[in-house]
Design a protein around this nucleic acid. Structure first.
Length: 876
RNA sequence: GGGCUCUUAGCUCAGCUGGUUCAGAGCACCUGCCUUACAAGCAGGGGGUCACUGGUUCGAACCCAGUAGGGCCCACCA
């Protein structure tokens, strides 16, 4: 059978993915095994795979595949999020392209468009995850708006309402004038923007005097209902109790006093606009001020805007400042940088706005979730530093605005039967709502069609916070077999940007609805950035096409590329070269397989070198397995990969294969062959979580396997013995080999030309390793000698001295210089060790073991100096 | 403004309890090799004042304090 020398991922990846699917390896049902479950952070239903998803899902796949190989019942639940505001915005934009305005559609018509869109694009990202190799249980694929998840959300809403935790309130909320909906505090991004600070003069009623205030938003003067000064401010003492006249609209408003006002800022005098600023709202309530809302929902001015009515707030800002200037009210303008809240989704500048919204009381809900992370450690965050951030948010949490003025989402199950503030009932079904309404209103003749359901939908996160529960049906059927088996899930992998949006709220929901944590570990990935440290984004165009990367480097190559430098919580500077490294590594393994496959096996005795080499590699592998397990336990995934990478590339390929490789066209003995295949298979198992396709391909090529023997469900190596002596001896041997190779290189002696080696042996070296030295360096004989050899190049390992006899002139001067340099270094080293050992306080205070090590260092150095001095003497 | 965190080789980062020759890895770089598995490779090599200043200690990249400079999160100063 001819095996190509280049591994070709394209031809194998889809094949093995189909094979895995056909055999149902990813599907999980509860059984007697230990469960291991992960729920996917559901990507937006209409999204496409980007680098963040790639990283995130690769990590999850590594974890789930390893769990599967460890023999656990691994279940990775896939699904998508309806992403109400993002999806609705996309649908609105698409309709607009077709000349359809959302306002011309009924709710049902709009929802039909949204569902069409969802069905058209909803599966794309999941198909892309399959290309990446993700071993999700696709039979469980869920959607935050499917029937079960929808009903779960409604049930939870009703439940929380009945517990008194959900309330309706007229509050100042963050208004996105573009999407025309409210946002939660978390959805507002504050950005520094260069603006102007306008100093405006307000005439004082019944006087020629003015009072000057500073504002960044001159257009809001039309909504002013007071001027506020600090009661301790001597400068304004004379203004107490007076009124001022608002320029342009000529309204008379009072001057009030409150020590909220910072005397140092601006003029020390503040205009109060209760409808458009959260602090002014508080002041307004405290001082019983009128509230004048000057904006429409799209942030154009309403009738309070007078001649500016219908114009956008930013247009008005420019125009009104001109008008103020023209009329002498504008004292001056200053450049000023202030923080402006913008919508996470639409980027529109947020307008604080008073409106009726639904809120969830958070204070008590949050308590068990805070404790779970900070006190009991039931939920662990990786890296740990996020615990502080988490605590801070949890301790300062505010009520969650859960209503959105959108159509795409779970419609709030509140039904109004009258026009009063409290003329509504909350219920999961119409019939119950009617019954409740009848009794609450005292009107037994109320009809169903007289009930009007709240038009708002719930915040997307109000459905995704239930995800680890709702995907197992744990809300609707709290005692079902699945939820009892898979919940709590084990690990969650996500980005720190949704710590508050999602992770914290899931923990809250877990304790509230299951009385149990939703997961044990949260692994936060970093942001994927480009080489210049810029965030990857569509607008910058610096995000590579995920699928093209897979085409170019293979899914395995991309996975390795992403994992190689992605310590938890650290941003990842993505560089395609890393994928190339991954691809190269895949090819390396492929060729390792090719080499073995090409050997002819014969019934001949096993060479000593092979026997020893195999023994050493087995120990090395056992040691590495321990390291890898340790890395995994600490979520150091890239370290785990690096450990396998080095094991396979350095120890296995460069050392073991070279040690056992038969001479050209010679057969290999059966014992070595069988053993090396077993060890190679162990390598493949260790590699499989990281590079699932390549390893399965090679695994199946090594021998014909039944579906029960597929690599995807192989068994992780169990702990084996580690022979420390073998490892030490190997390292010593490797140094000797490197010494000979260096001489070859320096003197340009080709590998074909065999050399001799003499050893002045003062170390207690096991001569068994000589066969390996000979083989790897083409040394014909190794001789043990008592005195330095003349006419030879030398090198030293520990206190052993090695001589390679050389025809022709040896540059004695150079040799002497080399030895002198080595001597100088060693003497310096010895000096520092001696100094340490002669320090009484060190000897008295340091642990025994540390002192023993120092003594050993001293003895080694002394022996080495002895060797060096003898060589020097023999040369001169 | 508050909190957290980081600064180690050209780049990205390890360095876990202060103690092995502890100053590391991968990549990049330099040199030599198309050696019969792999040039997507092999072998060899150079490279760091561990940000700075002090302190604690027998001993500090590691602990403490301060300084400088990044990053993240939170916060209503108009």
């Amino acid at each position: 059978m001819e095996i190509p020398s280049k591994y070709n991922p394209q031809s194998t990846e889809s094949h093995w993915y189909e094979y895995w699917m056909e055999n149902g390896y990813f599907h999980s049902v509860p059984d007697e095994r230990e469960p291991y479950s992960i729920v996917i952070p559901p990507p937006n239903v209409t999204g496409v795979l980007h680098m963040g998803h790639m990283l995130n899902n690769t990590l999850q796949d590594v974890l789930i595949r390893r769990a599967r190989i460890l023999g656990k019942n691994a279940c990775w639940v896939a699904g998508t999020d309806h992403a109400s505001i993002a999806t609705e915005a996309k649908v609105v934009a698409k309709l607009k392209e077709q000349g359809i305005s959302k306002n011309d559609l009924t709710r049902d018509e709009f929802l039909k468009h949204a569902w069409d869109w969802t069905h058209q694009y909803g599966g794309i990202i999941l198909e892309q995850l399959k290309k990446l190799g993700c071993s999700c249980d696709w039979d469980r694929t869920a959607f935050t708006m499917d029937k079960e998840r929808y009903d779960s959300v409604i049930k939870v809403f009703v439940d929380l309402y009945n517990k008194g935790l959900i309330y309706r309130g007229y509050r100042m909320v963050n208004w996105d004038p573009e999407a025309q909906t409210t946002l939660s505090d978390e959805e507002v991004i504050y950005e520094e923007k260069q603006g102007l600070l306008y100093y405006l003069a307000y005439p004082i009623e019944g006087s020629d005097e003015n009072v000057t205030i500073a504002t960044t938003r001159p257009e809001t003067i039309l909504g002013d209902t007071a001027i506020c000064i600090n009661p301790n401010d001597e400068r304004f003492k004379h203004l107490k109790g007076k009124n001022v006249i608002v320029p342009i609209c000529n309204r008379v408003i009072p001057i009030i006093e409150d020590d909220y006002v910072d005397m140092e800022f601006g003029t020390g005098c503040l205009k109060v606009t209760p409808a458009h600023d959260i602090n002014d709202k508080a002041l307004g309530e405290k001082h019983n001020l009128e509230t004048i809302d000057i904006f429409n929902d799209d942030a154009t001015l309403n009738s309070y805007g007078l001649h500016y009515q219908g114009k956008d707030r930013f247009v008005v800002r420019k125009e009104i400042s001109k008008e103020l200037e023209a009329n002498g009210f504008l004292v001056k303008m200053e450049n000023y940088v202030n923080k402006v809240g913008t919508s996470e989704r639409t980027k529109a500048v947020i307008e604080p706005k008073l409106s009726d919204q639904w809120f969830l009381k958070m204070e008590d809900l949050v308590k068990p979730a805070l404790e779970a992370v900070m006190d009991s450690g039931e939920v662990k965050l990786h890296p740990k530093k996020f615990e502080n951030t988490y605590r801070h948010w949890m301790e300062n949490v505010r009520d969650w605005n859960i209503s959105r003025q959108l159509w795409w989402g779970q419609q709030i199950p509140a039904f109004y039967y009258g026009d009063g503030q409290d003329d509504f009932v909350v219920s999961a079904t119409d019939e119950d709502a009617l019954a409740l309404a009848k009794s609450k209103s005292g009107n037994p003749h109320l009809k169903l069609d007289a009930l009007r359901q709240d038009a708002d939908v719930l915040d997307t996160w109000f459905s995704s916070w239930l995800w680890p529960i709702s995907v197992f049906g744990g809300i609707l059927e709290p005692d079902n077999k699945e939820i009892n088996y898979y919940y709590p899930t084990n690990d969650l992998v996500t980005g720190p940007d949704i710590l508050f949006f999602w992770v914290a709220r899931m923990i809250v929901a877990g304790y509230e609805f299951r009385n149990k944590k939703p997961f044990e570990n949260v692994y936060f990935t970093g942001l994927v950035r480009d080489k210049q440290r810029r965030k990857m984004s569509k607008s910058l165009g610096n995000s590579p096409d995920a699928l093209k990367l897979i085409d170019d480097y293979g899914a395995d190559g991309v996975r390795v590329g992403l994992l190689l430098s992605s310590a938890a919580g650290n941003d990842l500077m993505f560089d395609e070269d890393l994928c190339q490294q991954g691809k190269n590594f895949a090819n390396k393994i492929w060729n390792g397989f090719r080499l073995i496959k090409g050997w002819e096996v014969s019934d001949i005795p096993q060479p000593e070198a092979s026997k020893l080499g195999l023994e050493w590699y087995e120990t090395k592998l056992n040691k590495t397995v321990l390291e890898i397990d340790d890395h995994f336990n600490k979520f150091r995934i890239s370290d785990a990969l690096m450990a396998v990478y080095k094991l396979v590339r350095d120890d296995y390929s460069s050392w073991l294969l070279e040690i056992i490789k038969p001479a050209y066209q010679q057969p290999i003995d059966k014992e070595t062959f069988d053993r090396v295949i077993q060890l190679f298979e162990q390598n493949l198992i260790l590699l499989h979580p990281f590079m699932p396709f390549l390893t399965e391909e090679v695994w199946q090529h090594i021998s014909k396997r039944s579906p029960e023997e597929a690599l995807v469900i192989a068994k992780w190596p169990t702990e084996g013995a580690i022979d420390a002596m073998l490892l030490t001896q190997f390292e010593f041997t490797a140094e000797v080999i490197a010494g000979v190779r260096t001489i070859r290189k320096e003197k340009n002696i080709p590998m074909k030309e065999s050399l001799e080696l003499s050893v002045l042996n003062t170390e207690d070296v096991d001569k068994d390793w000589d066969v390996i030295i000979s083989k790897l360096t083409n040394i014909s004989t190794i001789t043990y000698i008592d005195a330095p050899l003349e006419g030879a190049l030398t090198f030293r390992v520990k206190s052993n001295e090695y001589f390679v006899p050389m025809d022709g002139a040896i540059d004695i001067e150079t040799e002497i210089l080399k030895i002198k340099a080595e001597l100088k270094y060693t003497e310096g080293f010895l000096l520092s060790v001696r100094k340490k050992l002669s320090n009484e306080r060190f000897v008295n205070n340091a642990p025994e073991q540390v002192i023993a090590i120092e003594r050993k260092k001293q003895a080694d150095a002394e022996a080495k100096i002895d060797t060096l001095e003898k060589s020097l003497a023999s040369l001169s």
